[in-house]
C-alpha cells in the first residue's frame, strides 16, 4: 500500500510530465520538415569564436534527422524538461506531506518508506525518460523519416540514469527541509549551475552530467557513456543513502 500512497502523491506530477515530454517529442518530430525547408534558405553564419562554432554545429546537425533529434531533443528539450520533472518527482515525501506522524505510526521502518518512495519515483522517471524517446521512433515515419528503436532506447536510458541524480538530489533535499519549495528550488539551482559549468567547459574534453544525459558519445561514436552512467548511478545511490540516513536520524 505504500506504493499506492506514493502513486497518489506523485501521479499528477508524473502525468503532467509525461504529457509535456510527449508533446515536446511529438512537436519536435513534426517541425523537422519545416526546419529542413528553412535551413535550405539560410546562408552560412559569419559568426566567429566559440558561439559561431556552436551555431554552425547546430545547423550542421539539423541538416540530418538523427542529428536534429539529438541536438534538439536529447540534448535540449527532453534533457531540460526531464531534469525539471525528475526534480519534481523527487520532492515531497514524509516531511512536507502534513501527515508525517500518521505515516510514522504505521508498522514500517523509515527506510521502508524511503525505499518505496524512491522506487516508485524512479519507476515513473524511467517511463518519463523512455516513453517520449520511443515516441520519436514511432512518429518519425509520419514525416518520412526513421529513427531506430534501439537508438531511442539508448538515449532514453542515458536520460534516465543521469536524470536520476537530480531525482535523488531532490529526495535528499526533501529530507532536509520541511517544505516543498526549498528542495525544489535548490535542486533546480544546482541543475542550472551544472548546466552553466558544462557550457563554459571545453567542448572536446571532460565529463559532464548533461553530456551523459544526452548520450553524446553514443550519438557521435556509437559508444555508450558507460563510465558516466556508472558514475551517475553511483551518485544516485550515494544521494539516496544519505537521504535514508538523514531520514532515520530526524525527529518528527
Amino acid at each position: 500500500m505504500l506504493w499506492y500512497k506514493s502513486w497518489l502523491e506523485t501521479r499528477w506530477r508524473f502525468l503532467i510530465g509525461l504529457a509535456l515530454l510527449l508533446c515536446s517529442a511529438g512537436a519536435m518530430v513534426l517541425t523537422y520538415p519545416r526546419l529542413q525547408a528553412l535551413l535550405s534558405h539560410i546562408p552560412e553564419p559569419q559568426l566567429g569564436g566559440a558561439l559561431g562554432e556552436r551555431v554552425r554545429e547546430a545547423i550542421e546537425l539539423s541538416r540530418e534527422y538523427r542529428g536534429f533529434v539529438w541536438a534538439q531533443g536529447f540534448s535540449q528539450n527532453l534533457a531540460q524538461l526531464g531534469t525539471l520533472f525528475a526534480v519534481l518527482l523527487g520532492t515531497g515525501g514524509l516531511l512536507s506531506g502534513g501527515a508525517a506522524l500518521f505515516t510514522l505510526s504505521l508498522p514500517a521502518t523509515r527506510r521502508d518508506l524511503l525505499r518505496v518512495r524512491a522506487a516508485a519515483g524512479l519507476a515513473e522517471w524511467l517511463l518519463l525518460a523512455l516513453v517520449p524517446s520511443l515516441l520519436i521512433s514511432l512518429m518519425s515515419p509520419v514525416i518520412g523519416e526513421s529513427y531506430g528503436v534501439v537508438t531511442a532506447l539508448a538515449h532514453g536510458l542515458c536520460l534516465f540514469v543521469a536524470g536520476a541524480v537530480f531525482f535523488s538530489l531532490a529526495m535528499l533535499l526533501s529530507t532536509l527541509f520541511t517544505d516543498v519549495w526549498r528542495p525544489l528550488l535548490t535542486a533546480i539551482a544546482i541543475a542550472a549551475f551544472l548546466a552553466l559549468l558544462e557550457q563554459l567547459a571545453p567542448r572536446d574534453g571532460g565529463w559532464g552530467i548533461y553530456r551523459v544525459m544526452s548520450g553524446e558519445s553514443y550519438f557521435r561514436s556509437g559508444a555508450m557513456p558507460w563510465a558516466g552512467l556508472a558514475a551517475s548511478a553511483a551518485a544516485s545511490v550515494a544521494l539516496l543513502y544519505a537521504a535514508a540516513v538523514n531520514l532515520e536520524r530526524r525527529d518528527f
Binding site: 500512497k5 502534513g98 500518521f102
Partner: peptide
C-alpha cells in the same frame, strides 16, 4: 495524533 493529520488526497 493531536493534529489528526491524515492524507488529504
Amino acid at each position: 495524533g493531536e493534529e489528526k493529520d491524515l492524507y488529504d488526497y
